[in-house]
Nucleic acid binder design. Structure first.
Lengths: 145, 145
DNA sequence: TCTTACATTGTAATTCTTATAAATTATTTT
DNA sequence: AAAATAATTTATAAGAATTACAATGTAAGA
């Protein structure tokens, strides 16, 4: 279950000046339990039942708070809106260029890349982002015939 | 000089149904000569002198055309607008989290990652994207004292 | 309890990007 | 070379995603 990780995230927030609110809890819960990488709007819609009065602004505000604390990552792609992913174990994404499906896969951290970049550019590097693009099995099949 | 590469790009366009226009030439020229990674608006502003009547839509349209032909890449980051980079040799970017500065660095292609992703997910992989984030020398100095 | 600081809500505003239609320019056909 | 066709540009409007703002609400500390 993702519940331990959710708890860790909540604890991480407690140690800052960030207060825990029902809305925040719900957003975090949704993020940690959903295996997908939802957009702000998807989160908003998903929580409409529980919080009929919640504002979209709240979702955006809190996602930013979580991002600043470092427990959530924003994924931006060319088109459409940003997607949000909770930072758990180190993993990367494969994205289908046709349908947009996102699948996780694990790969040992690319520390060498960070080190090289530091040396070559003089930057103080602290993280990186990588995505792999291709066609998912479903879309591959459809274009076959 | 980047002029040979610019010429190659123009030749690449000629082999398609894409027509060469003064605006397109200017946009390409700007992209290939600027060492930065300009936004659509930056390009627009930069060419205002030469083409006082050019529309922002033209810039966007043509960047998309170039993207489709494969001679330009779109870089999307969390905030602000997309940046555009001409596809020359394989390289990656280090981005300053403070000021947004982008610096290129070379790194041998990460083919193993693509291969692994293919095996694990069943996708047909054809490319990847990677960026390294950190603080640039200038910004590092400023926060020191 | 009172005060202060942080959060939420609703809405308006902003920003980036795309769609559309008319006018213009480039290519192809005759 | 002129006419016909196709692609392009322009200007503007529309759209979508995100943020700003002011008012209200809620939690924590003195």
């Amino acid at each position: 279950m993702a519940n331990e990780q959710l708890q860790e995230a909540i604890d991480a927030l407690k140690s800052t000046k960030v207060r825990m609110t029902p809305q925040r809890h719900a957003i975090l819960e949704y993020l940690y339990n959903s295996m997908s990488h939802p957009t702000a709007d998807e989160i908003y819609k998903a929580l409409e039942g529980k919080f009929p009065n919640m504002s979209v602004a709240t979702v955006y505000n809190n996602l930013r708070v979580f991002k600043d604390v470092g427990i959530v990552k924003e994924l931006t792609y060319g088109d459409s809106s940003s997607r949000f992913d909770c930072v758990t174990t180190e993993h990367y994404h494969v994205i289908c260029s046709d349908c947009g499906k996102i699948v996780d896969f694990h790969y040992p951290g690319l520390n060498e890349v960070e080190t090289l970049a530091e040396h070559v550019t003089g930057f103080k590097v602290d993280n990186h982002r990588m995505e792999v693009y291709g066609t998912c099995p479903d879309c591959s099949q459809q274009t076959q015939h």
